[in-house]
Design a binder for these strands. Sequence first.
RNA 1: GUGGCCGUAGCUCAAAGGUAGAGUCCGGGGUUGUGAUCCCCGUUGUUGUGGGUUCGAGUCCCAUCGGCCACCCCA
Length: 454
Amino acid sequence: MRKVRPALLKGFDQEFLPQDQLQFDALLDLIRRNFERYGFLPIETPSAERIEVLTSKGGTEKEIYALSRLAAPEDEEAAAKGALRFDLTVPLARYVAMRERELAFPFRRYQIQRVWRGENPQVKRGRFREFYQCDIDIIGRETLSYLYEAEIPSVIYAMFKDMAIGEFCIRINNRKLLKGILQHFEVPEARASEVLRALDKTAKEPEQAILGELGSQGMAAKAAAELYRIITARRESAETLALLTDLAYRNESYTQGLDELGKVTDAARQFGVPDTAFAIDLSVVRGLDYYTGTIYETTLSAHADIGSICSGGRYDDLASYFSNTRLPGVGISIGLSRLFARLKEANLLRPPPRTPAEVLVTMLDADALARYLAIAAELRERDINTEVYLERAKIGKQFEYASKKGFRIAITAGAEEFGRGTVKVKDLASQRESDVPLGEVAARVKQMLDEKVN
RNA sequence: GUGGCCGUAGCUCAAAGGUAGAGUCCGGGGUUGUGAUCCCCGUUGUUGUGGGUUCGAGUCCCAUCGGCCACCCCA
């Protein structure tokens, strides 16, 4: 029979060997645990949504995968109603708009699910067509206190501290402030997004390249240089605020943005985020379509090349396309697939357990199966994850299996041991083996496992 | 979508126009009931696909498909 070549689809290639999956799951669990610590509630939404819901914001068709059956007749295909979601924010907006009357506001939810984008994948940078996002958002009804904007850095801080992947910096900026600055430099509205995009590259590109870009957007050389200087000033956040206050640009957007930035950073400190972990950074631009106020971007201090590991911001009205109620919100997103890929590449992840089970009960004598199963049952009763080797195989092969899979303890017993009322308990790492009376097996295994942790 | 690089065993790669190989992995063995080392044996290929040049093509030429990288954008 002709075999089908086992192969994956470009960009749909994130599957792991069990050992890597365990490591991935550990990272996911850590993120979830921290979200829950702050009282965020879990939700999931369907993988596919109505096309008009997904495209309500416009401009994203290119990367959206539409749904259609393989055997669909042409007319049906043309009428495809559904498509795979490309982020978790649009589905959230739809979700909240649909359930406004049942939810408790401010609504705090976390969502950890896959999303799909038809862009060119770049494996080395952790970019795929199917990937996990971990989002938290806080949605208010009509109003939402700036204090929630200050709470977000606190969640980020707790989470990445827990991850123990080195020093990181939560860089904070404000879209209104940026808008005010551009207004001051008389950048026309139509050119604003191009200018911001250019400023967003200050970390990657040399000054000359950016000044050139600003010039081609119509800025005078002197103004461009001045703008560049302000945007790239790196100071303690208090100093940056003082500097911005001194500039005293006279427009509403600037004044309001500066006020918000001051209040949010001040409050973040009260939430316990140390000054070493955050900074005001005017070159952070982020999500031009979404955010209207505070924006965040987090990077690792020792691994700038990894880029942003978590980003988000405040928006005035989440569900304006779906509801008349004004729903302001603030949230962040972690690209988990990307984060995992990059952290693993940089060797920053803790090694995972090699198997979820700690004990392997070998089968030396198939006739004694009942006794092996009884030992395993007793261990599981005591919350010790245990596997029984059920294939008839030479004992050497069973130990090889135990070693490869990473069990910590193997239990072996045959007629000889059972005759004495004992079993052999072996620590696989140290290769030490001892006889243990049947009644004490669980207690002894538990003791060995506890010792190893310390 | 635009530009550059690359397709040989499951994986990493040799073979510079003349019989397709190595390492690794995987499987078996090294006499009674103990794994990571070592030794022996073994499986694996329409050289991405199609055409052309040649006595002869993995190698040269053309086309095509696939992959990687950069740009755009973003997680």
